[in-house]
């Protein structure tokens, strides 16, 4: 079964097309990267998969079910900017907010969620900061807290938006180790404009620029990148020190 399956999906904002006839299959257990230039439709595709948007045409399925009936199967790790950082909340409580949505949480359920959250923090070596306020965490810590939150309720797929946007290169390396471990149990999809990071680590790369092209990692180079990003990309490849060969990762 496919973890994610898009069939002929088109979507536009007020008549401006963002995605045109995109079909995509990500098999269960994959470690996939979705890359593309800004404005290429990455975030839109992510929102469609998360059920935040409905496609104009075509269908979006998670594990063989329409998105509206598969809530809780996908854990989502946002970029940091999406929530109130000055909110009075501890790391532990933030993690406990993840999982299945619920209007009422009875004390017994609350206790169970806090226990699960504490176990997740421990698994990420974050027990020491469980009581710390969200606003006092470093970028790397906050990201691991958000990954822990996305893993509440044991989802079958983990979706990450721009995983390298707010962390330094050391945290980036730690992040990859964590993700590789997690990938033994669940499907992972990273969405990024950072071609270097993505293609070093993932097994499949999907390149999105309104339309979609899928490639194994080794092919996500040269002509294809040029086609997607134009000269700007070639300059980054030549000058920026990013490498895309598996053996150097």
């Amino acid at each position: 079964m496919n973890a994610i399956e898009l069939k002929n999906v088109s979507f536009g904002y007020d008549g401006t097309p963002v995605l045109s006839d995109v079909s995509l299959e990500i098999p269960q257990g994959a470690f996939a990267g979705l890359i593309g230039p800004n404005g290429g439709g990455k975030s839109t595709l992510l929102k469609l998969v998360l059920g935040l948007l409905e496609p104009d045409s075509g269908s979006v399925e998670l594990f063989g079910k329409p998105v509206s009936r598969s809530r809780g199967l996908a854990g989502y790790v946002p970029q940091f900017a999406n929530f109130r950082k000055d909110f009075p909340i501890s790391a532990l409580d933030c993690v406990a907010l993840g999982g299945k949505g619920s209007l009422f949480i009875l004390p017994g359920e609350r206790k169970r969620r806090l226990k699960e959250a504490a176990e997740l923090l421990e698994a990420f070596d974050l027990s020491g900061i469980a009581d710390r306020q969200i606003s006092a965490l470093s970028g790397g810590q906050l990201q691991r807290v958000l990954i822990a939150r996305a893993l509440m309720g044991s989802p079958k797929i983990l979706l990450m938006d721009e995983p390298t946007a707010n962390v330094d290169s050391h945290a980036e390396h730690c992040l990859f180790e964590i993700l590789r471990e997690l990938n033994k149990k669940l499907t992972i999809v990273l969405v990024s404009h950072d071609v270097g990071f993505i293609s070093e680590y993932v097994s499949t790369v999907f390149c999105l620029n309104r339309r979609l092209v899928a490639h194994p990692t080794s092919a996500a180079e040269g002509e294809l990148l040029h086609e997607l990003y134009g000269d700007q990309m070639r300059r980054i490849l030549h000058d920026g020190g990013h490498h895309h060969h598996g053996e150097e990762a």
Partner: peptide
């Protein structure tokens, strides 16, 4: 008090609340 949890989640991270189908 009854709806404390969803009110808190919406105030903190509305996107997550939407994703959870609230």
């Amino acid at each position: 008090i009854l709806l404390y949890h969803p009110f808190k989640l919406c105030a903190f991270d509305e996107e997550l609340a939407r994703i959870q189908g609230l």
